[in-house]
């Protein structure tokens, strides 16, 4: 994530921290480079909150797989 609501200070402004694990719908720009997807978010269109309440789908992260 390179921008949150058009602000590149995604860590300092705690934009990601506040919606950690939330399912969101965003508008912005997607950049693909060397196999990674980078997202620059202009706007959060919808915030569904935390919808996945267990580790069933993704296992324990980052050590489970």
């Amino acid at each position: 994530m390179l921008k949150m609501e058009n602000d590149p200070d995604v860590i300092g402004q705690h934009g990601i921290l506040k919606i950690q694990s939330n399912e969101i719908v965003v508008e912005g720009d997607l950049y693909v480079r060397d196999g990674l997807n980078y997202l620059a978010i202009d706007t959060i269109v919808e915030d569904h909150g935390i919808v996945n309440h267990s580790h069933d789908e993704f296992d324990i992260q980052p050590f489970g797989n």
């Binding site: 390179l2 590149p8 995604v10 860590i11 720009d29 620059a40």
Partner: peptide, 20 residues
Amino acid sequence: DVLCVLTGDCPADCGAGKRV
């Protein structure tokens, strides 16, 4: 700074600690 590499928006100080 990654945003610079991907978009060409390149502050001289890499965003002074505010960019990935």
